[in-house]
């Protein structure tokens, strides 16, 4: 048995002894990562469920409340995240082709995009805090920013706005940490990433998921059509 394991090991430097071949090993990693992502889908899905319920109940008040959000900033952040998703895809492709320079450059751009996203989000949040649009005892104490919406219903909207975009922003922060760790491994020419593209692929999957959530958050939070 040891001889067999040894033979396999020589064929594929990245192959661990418990797997039959590199395809099975890669597949196990991918399925494992998707299992995690599916739990994340359910996690965010429950919030989208709450959103659907209350949005359908208070269409007009939510529409009025959502007008305080800046579509331009939201669209800018969407573009930033789409670009970062693209650069991660290029980084994974470069990792498969073992082009270290391209991997480092693209992970670097992705991390920069993540920071840009957070800075824009921080400006948006601080404006909402200034206008007392965060859920709490002083919510709506600057009534002109409610645009005539019922304060209770508007507070529901902003509770979900801060909850869902906040949770998403938390995922961006985690993404920055993970991407930085990956960048470090590539920078130090570690075998774990240089000989096996899978670590880069898995971090990429996580980052694409973060983009995926925003693809739904952007139209639902910023782009409500006027009830008619």
């Amino acid at each position: 048995m040891a001889a067999i394991a040894h033979d396999t090991h020589e064929d594929h430097g990245a192959l661990h002894h418990q797997f039959e071949n590199i395809e099975q090993q890669n597949d196990s990693y991918i399925v494992g990562m998707w299992t995690f992502l599916v739990t994340e889908v359910m996690f965010f899905g429950a919030l989208f469920l709450i959103y659907t319920l209350y949005r359908s109940m208070y269409q007009m008040d939510w529409y009025l409340a959502h007008e305080e959000l800046d579509v331009k900033l939201g669209a800018f952040n969407t573009i930033v995240l789409l670009i970062s998703s693209f650069t991660v895809a290029v980084a994974v492709r470069s990792a498969q082709r073992k082009e270290r320079g391209l991997v480092l450059a693209n992970i670097g751009i992705t991390i920069a995009c993540a920071f840009i996203f957070l800075v824009v989000k921080a400006f948006e949040y601080s404006a909402k805090f200034e206008h007392h649009l965060y859920p709490g005892p002083t919510f709506g104490s600057v009534p002109e920013h409610l645009n005539g919406a019922n304060a209770n219903y508007a507070q529901l909207f902003y509770g979900l706005y801060f909850g869902m975009t906040g949770l998403h922003a938390l995922h961006i922060i985690v993404g920055i940490i993970v991407l930085s760790a990956l960048f470090n491994l590539w920078w130090r020419k570690c075998d774990s990433v240089m000989k096996d593209y899978i670590p880069t692929e898995l971090v990429g999957l996580y980052w694409h998921f973060v983009d995926l959530v925003w693809i739904f958050l952007f139209p639902l939070m910023y782009l409500m059509p006027k009830p008619h």
Partner: peptide
């Protein structure tokens, strides 16, 4: 599109 192409 993201799932099919970017996520492989």
């Amino acid at each position: 599109l993201v799932i099919w192409f970017f996520m492989g």
